[in-house]
Design a protein around this nucleic acid. Structure first.
Lengths: 198, 198, 198, 198
DNA sequence: TATGAATGAGACTTCATTCAT
DNA sequence: AATGAATGAAGTCTCATTCAT
């Protein structure tokens, strides 16, 4: 059949991406059948090929765009920051906001790298490394300027990222705990963790 | 055909489990083909079914056994502990040891739950919850007895677990950082995080 | 969208036929995707159906027109011929010219009959038989009038056609051998083959 | 289901090859569906994968084996030949025998090269060139030793091969014309074609 | 006329699974 | 205990075709 009344490519594409993120989050990329994904947005299997010529390339683009958006949002969010202390507070706030509001995206951005080809993997993880580097920079400045407890910046960076990213695994926005409260608690924990020696 | 000289059922089973853990760790359960797994241990596809009647049940058993062993090792490791402070130090040490020495197992134990049926999922995650509960108990005792900074024990438990489990994502035993040094660093971080107020 | 400036229905159709001949010649009718064919002439897949309502009917028409043109050209080329000897020389000259200048068309005219429906096949091969019959007529006259070595006119016809058509499989117009020289060589071979006994 | 009583891999493989040759001969490689091929030999689609992991590689092997067998048979058939004249007679006899008895195989061996990858194509056509070279050698010797009319050995080789191979396009073993009679006629034609000048 | 959206059939292929041997 | 033969479901992808715009 031909194009139904009112159908629109760009909207359909958005619907597909959104449905794909949910499916991948729930059961993984490998377990996501394109036929089922098509049904999610009211299409038959064959029609998906107009939007997803290759399943794996679609995943790579998806992850790449997620990481790109994360980076973009982050850099915007950090404008005007001067002190390490302020930078850290903002980082924690930003990271928790993204990792709770968009938990599905960040989860697959972290987990589904293994389903990419080496080239695709490299492309995406380069962006992740840039994001990590931002945090590492903050920690190193805080150590120098404010005497933060950062014995090994690489380790502390990994530790903080794991700590903060973890919220995406259990936090539910509709639970008892508000995001503001959550953020406050994590900011306090991080502050203690980096407490200036003596 | 008859059994090749030198082969042995139990050994073969161990080889299969070991190969499966590697494959699942690297590319996920869905991406692990049984034919390839068979080839890993020198068998053809058909023969695997003497050991693995059902792929998914095999996964469920695998994860269940991993978590059971974690629990068993943990409880053994904690014997004779009296104070919360000592318990915490031991927990950190134990967790990091397990999550670096057996990183592949703990990784799939955390990640591949989504490939299980609801019943299987429940069976495995019950053990994970028991493990978490141990940490939560320690935190609550430390809060009462020693005034630790534990505003919300559930949150702090999740936070600590994420922080510590994160090492399995990046630590390489053959790198520059020894496991002892790593453990010391994490113990220090955790101690600061739980610093008694005032 | 409207028709791009400078495009023209009849020209586009010619471009499509020309591109199709090349594609079919190279990899066969079945391997020719209409989407790719459309791209060859600067169209998208959907637009092709203004020109090619049905792929197979298009092939049938293409082959039919090729054979029709061959016949037409041939009959024109043979006007005014009187003796069998002259007819044969002209036949060889004509056949080789067509089968080198338009090698792609004659090749698919011979090879792609198998992709036609029985009715279409019949329609096209009837023209081929008419062409063969012309040669057979010449041979039979030469046998009667000039004593040519034609033991079995059917066999000799097939043999000569195979011999001459073969040039389309290897001759390159831009090679060292000119078409005139080639024709001379084949005329000489044919003459010897039909040499009057004694 | 498991292996049916009496099934046997080698026999099945032969049946598949034989059925494939017929299908490819009739409608071409691209038009041969593996599902249908499986049905030809009493299998379901999926079972074919045990025998044909890749359709195109199967074609390449098929063509390669056909050409290898042609070469082997030929070299065996030519043993003990001394004079060019005798060699030529044998070549004609051999070629016509193969191209009538095994017309389907030689037809696809010539026609389906276009469905191969460049590497596969090269592998198969190298054998074809060796076969052609044998004929060319004979012609060059006959020219030198017996004064045959061979103005250009390349052209005459191509011409003779086309002439002789042509029989596979029309000869039916069950028709009125016996293979012996056919061979005699072609040997006579070839002899005249190569008639010593003057 | 040309495009883009959609279809549905069917292509090749992979895979877990079964079971006679 | 291991193999090889077979299955059937499902996977991704291709493609000719249709038709509203």
């Amino acid at each position: 059949m031909a194009r139904p009344i009112g159908s629109n490519g760009a909207e359909t594409m958005r619907a597909i991406r959104s449905a794909a993120i949910k499916r991948i989050y729930q059961h993984g990329y490998e377990a996501m059948s394109l036929r089922v994904l098509a049904a999610d947005v009211g299409l038959r299997g064959g029609s998906l090929h107009n939007y997803i010529p290759q399943k794996q390339e679609f995943l790579a683009n998806l992850l790449d765009e997620i990481m790109a958006e994360l980076l973009l949002d982050f850099e915007e969010h950090m404008q005007g920051v001067t002190t390490p202390s302020e930078a850290l507070q903002r980082f924690v706030g930003f990271h928790i906001e993204w990792h709770t509001e968009r938990k599905e995206e960040v989860f697959i951005g972290n987990m589904e790298l293994r389903s990419l080809s080496p080239e695709q993997h490299q492309r995406v993880s380069a962006k992740r490394k840039r994001y990590e580097q931002h945090l590492k920079d903050i920690l190193e400045q805080g150590k120098v300027q404010d005497g933060w407890s950062v014995e090994n910046a690489d380790v502390t960076t990994k530790a903080l990222l794991a700590l903060l990213t973890g919220v995406s695994n259990w936090y539910h926005a509709d639970g008892k705990l508000s995001r503001e409260r959550l953020t406050k608690m994590y900011q306090a924990m991080v502050n203690r963790m980096l407490l200036a020696e003596k």
